[in-house]
Design a protein around this nucleic acid. Structure first.
Lengths: 199, 199
DNA sequence: CCTACTTGATTGATCGTTCAATAAACAGTG
DNA sequence: CACTGTTTATTGAACGATCAATCAAGTAGG
């Protein structure tokens, strides 16, 4: 016999689709089984203890790890003209199936504090923390003017968000032809010009 | 008998709470009835045809109307130092029970395209549209340097978003003491400085 | 007596989950 | 290789719980 895709990951994949498009309650064991091409929902219980455990595993395997700041120390000295576009691109790289995972996470973060916390600490929180420290360092180095770095860290992350949300939430509604790279370029320019040291 | 709050709005209020915290599927007719203090879930069907109709009415009555740009014509000539903080404050004014409504809308927008569309056209879409036109006008007036206004409109809206999302999604996680007004002030300063005409 | 409001009981459908039975893959023995 | 015992994979049927929705009956005010 052909070694087909192994059943376990087959179920996980189908579960991601179902959870992302219908939510935890909306997706049923039956619909997941059907999406996975199983003849019986019971098979899911051979591989996973229950629906909740299946959900947790789907979630865990897709919490985005932000690789753009994998080595914070090395980035600290680099000029913002290099660092900021890298971080921006990491956010804008949300495409299928990352979009699915993001939808899933957002939806469940709204009503599960622990999901929100895990997600925040794994992604946005770390980036914000790094950016704040990085900005402070750049101010010390005289590359940026003194300012509230709590605020500027948020501001930079936020500037790329509408572009990301446009893809995840309002796919067609916001399409005016502005590409990710164009937007990123404009945004970095405005941000750096706005924080340029005086004189 | 005292004319207590009328039953209908009593149910609507409870439904908002339930839908926002548990989602459409998670909130049950029974739990809504309990939250509204009804003795029987059947009473809901006296005031609303079915669950879907109840949900639609809850949603309709809470789609945020952005009053900050109620009169676009009048704002067009005003300088950005006045206009931008006003728009920013409108976004940051999300508090209870607006937060609940926003959570509800985001959650359902993820899996109901028509909800996403209604929401977008009623809120973010109009603001983005206005901002784009407004930015173009300010460039014409020489108050801002020439640039891609599709991008800057998104950027400004985005800059305040992390602060809003912090309240809605990660209430405690992001609290570092930065107030809304401080953030808004910093953000507007960076944005305007970044787009200041040369010379 | 009429109308609007409120209730408990009930319906059929669907949920997550369990289970006993079957089929397939595997391991060891001769 | 063949035979046998054992574990793993898969299935259909079934269980109790809960869901949205219905209904007939009851209450109160005008």
């Amino acid at each position: 016999m052909f070694e087909v895709v192994d059943r376990r990951s087959q179920i996980l994949e189908a579960a991601l689709e179902e959870f992302a498009s219908k939510g935890y309650k909306g997706a049923t064991i039956k619909s997941i089984a059907a999406a996975a091409g199983l003849q019986s929902p019971a098979l899911i219980y051979h591989y996973f203890p229950d629906k909740e455990a299946l959900f947790d595993e789907v979630l865990e395997s897709h919490v985005p790890v932000v690789q753009a700041i994998a080595d914070p120390g090395a980035l600290m000295g680099l000029p913002p003209e290099e660092v900021l576009p890298g971080i921006g691109r990491a956010y804008l790289a949300f495409d299928q199936p990352n979009t699915q995972a993001l939808r899933l996470i957002i939806a469940e973060a709204l009503r599960r504090p622990e999901v929100a916390e895990t997600f925040f600490r794994g992604g946005p929180g770390r980036v914000l923390g790094f950016l704040k420290a990085y900005m402070e360092r750049q101010v010390e180095l005289g590359r940026l003017r003194p300012h509230d770095t709590r605020s500027s860290a948020r501001a930079f992350v936020g500037m790329v968000m509408p572009q990301v949300l446009g893809k995840v939430l309002f796919s067609s509604l916001m399409d005016d032809g502005l590409t990710d790279e164009e937007h990123l370029q404009n945004v970095v320019a405005v941000f750096l010009e706005g924080l340029r040291p005086e004189g």
